[in-house]
Design a binder for these strands. Structure first.
Length: 556
RNA sequence: GGCCCAUUGGUCAAGCGGUUAAGACGCAGCCCUCUCAAGGCUGAAUCAUGGGUUCGAUUCCCGUAUGGGUCACCA
């Protein structure tokens, strides 16, 4: 033992604290609730899967009166992307996810268990590594990358399990004296964990989501401290989650195979094990098969896609809940207006198979969400969204706020049946641009009118409908009067005003009332489908209507 | 390839030894209707497969197939 201590001193001359000191520095939390964390690496944008994870983290912590914190895992300096954490934090915030502790804002840490950025915790990892060396549970490894590479190739060729273990763990078997000598001589090394496991033996643990898991012990002498002095993920996880007093680690199921390593590390360090909850991967359909949502191929993989398109964040959250927990949808059906906070999430009820990402369902939920907004709320939402994501729409709705509000109010405010045709805020341009004179003109210049003629409904009929309509239109009319006037006009021109009747004997008429109104609709909106024409006309105003109709007339 | 995880309609899914196998999205049809969206009603569509255990398996066990994950000084 004496020798291991010498070795440890030699390897970590500047480390004077012990694990005992750390235990005192980071005492157990005096709360009953769950302590969870989101531990992003600064390597890119916020992935949809990560949003899913953080949603769970926050929910589990908050519903038990616990703490949800954020820790930055920046131990891979090579892959680091500038601004990544800032970006992720910002995206999370838009979805209403703000950590209670840790890195709560860009460059701002809060809490007593910090620092919450791994690159600033170097001393802590070294204290733990030193302790392990002292106990003979870790050792310096002098193997070069090339040596590792050749043994790996040899192992693969011989169909052996690849890795650093048993007889292939060259440095684990050299004598302590030699280790001391080589460290003294300044030879470069990394630190490896001395595994006491065997892949022939199985360990079992109970996953909060997956249930009982049986898996082979780890027998690999994994690296715990890299040549740059920073810890590997495995080591940092054990150390950080222990000293930050995490109770449940919620992470993607790609981590499941490394649980044996983690358990071993916790045990060797003398730490109490944390609970694990491994969540299934969100998949996406790719042709006939399904696969993991890919950052490269799938635009939906980045949550920014939804933000940019103007999906209300709460709609995405709502959708995520439907795949998070199997009893969410029934609950929602019975609790339509309740806050998500009131829903009790149970990890055990989570499906352990990977869910397919279903954009159709998101669209449906989003549509529903937007339909609940009144015109003023819609305006505020679209305004703040477009300020950041869509300048064109922002300019458009702010040309004349009063006018925009009138447009938004159509079939929305005080409507018996609220219109549900906006899936995302981005759709506003497509749905409402014809309300604006210049955009209406632009549309016609670029695409022409969308009138459709046939043997019966000829250009002449279109002309008749429109020219007559201008004579009878009166903004003061209420809806019934307005429509009965159209009926009278249509009848006089040979249209049938009763849809049922028309369906029975279409040959007797030149068209239905629907065909007649369609002509008016196209003249005014150049769209085949629009909301209620009565309200559209009231909103657009007589002068503009006249101008548009006359424009059509002039061309026929 | 080794190991691990999974498998109920096209998708998300209830189910936890005996059910006409819920519900939602989507799809089809009908109704309503000035178009569309919505809404209402109806419908088509599911327990991967082979063995067990059991009076009885979607449900429990084993094998097979399929899909996914993982085997770094990346997380």
């Amino acid at each position: 033992m004496e020798k291991y201590e010498m070795l440890a001193e030699l390897m970590f001359p500047n480390v004077t604290d012990t694990i005992e000191d750390l235990e005192n520095r980071y005492p157990e939390r005096k709360i009953d609730g769950e302590v969870t964390r989101y531990a992003p690496s600064p390597t890119g944008f916020l992935h949809t899967g990560s949003l899913f994870t953080t949603l769970l983290d926050q929910k589990i912590a908050h519903q038990t009166g616990g703490v949800f914190y954020l820790r930055v895992e920046d131990t891979d300096k090579k892959r680091e992307v500038e601004g990544s954490i800032e970006d992720q934090l910002k995206s999370l915030k838009e979805f209403g996810i703000v950590p209670d502790e840790g890195v709560v804002e860009p460059k701002k840490e809060e809490g007593k268990y910090g620092p919450y950025t791994q690159s600033k915790r170097g001393d802590i990892y070294l204290i733990c590594a030193k302790e392990l060396v002292k106990k003979g549970k870790a050792y310096p490894c002098f193997c070069t990358a090339e040596m590792l590479d050749t043994t790996r190739k040899m192992q693969e060729k011989n169909k052996q399990i690849p890795g650093y273990y048993g007889i292939y763990a060259r440095c684990r078997n050299i004598s302590v004296d030699e280790m001391i000598e080589r460290v003294k001589s300044g030879e470069e090394y990394i630190v490896r964990f001395r595994s006491n496991g065997s892949h022939l033996k199985k360990i079992s643990y109970v996953d909060k989501i997956k249930g009982k898991i049986e898996i082979a012990e780890n027998d690999q002498d994994i690296v715990i401290v890299k040549s740059d002095g920073l810890p590997t993920y495995h080591f940092a996880h054990a150390v950080d989650d222990h000293f930050m007093r995490t109770t449940t680690v919620i992470r993607g199921e790609e981590w499941l195979p490394s649980v044996p390593i983690h358990l071993q590390l916790f045990d060797s360090l003398g730490f109490e094990r944390v609970n694990y909850a491994h969540i299934p991967t969100i998949m996406i359909k790719d042709g006939e098969s399904k696969r993991k949502l890919s950052k490269r191929k799938d635009k939906e993989a980045a949550v920014s896609y939804f933000l940019k398109a103007g999906y209300p964040p709460e709609a995405i959250i709502e959708y995520l809940y439907t795949i998070i927990n199997s009893d969410f949808e029934p609950w929602r059906k019975n609790n339509k207006d309740k806050s998500l906070d009131e829903f009790k999430l149970r990890l055990e009820k989570m499906n352990s198979a990977g869910a397919l990402f279903d954009i159709m369902k998101i669209n449906d939920i989003s549509k529903e969400t937007i339909s609940k907004l009144n015109s003023h709320e819609l305006f505020e939402r679209v305004n703040s969204w477009s300020e950041e994501y869509n300048k064109e729409i922002n300019d458009l709705i702010n040309r004349d706020k009063f006018y925009t509000l009138k447009i938004f109010a159509i079939e929305r405010d005080e409507a018996v049946k609220i219109r549900k045709d906006l899936v995302k805020f981005e759709d506003i341009y497509e749905n409402f641009s014809y309300f604006f004179h210049d955009l209406y003109i632009k549309d016609i210049d670029e695409n022409g009118y969308v009138f459709e003629t046939n043997e019966k409904i000829t250009n002449r009929v279109i002309y008749e409908v429109l020219s007559n309509y201008m004579n009878i239109y009166d903004v003061e009319d209420d809806k019934d009067v307005w429509f009965s006037k159209i009926k009278t006009l249509a009848t006089s021109l040979g249209f049938c005003t009763d849809m049922k009747q028309y369906k029975l004997e279409p040959d007797k008429y030149i068209g239905s009332i629907a065909d007649a109104t369609s002509i008016i609709r196209i003249a005014i909106c150049n769209r085949k489908n629009t909301p209620d024409m009565y309200y559209i006309m009231k909103t657009i105003g007589v002068e503009e209507i006249k101008s548009r109709v006359n424009n059509v007339l002039a061309k026929f």
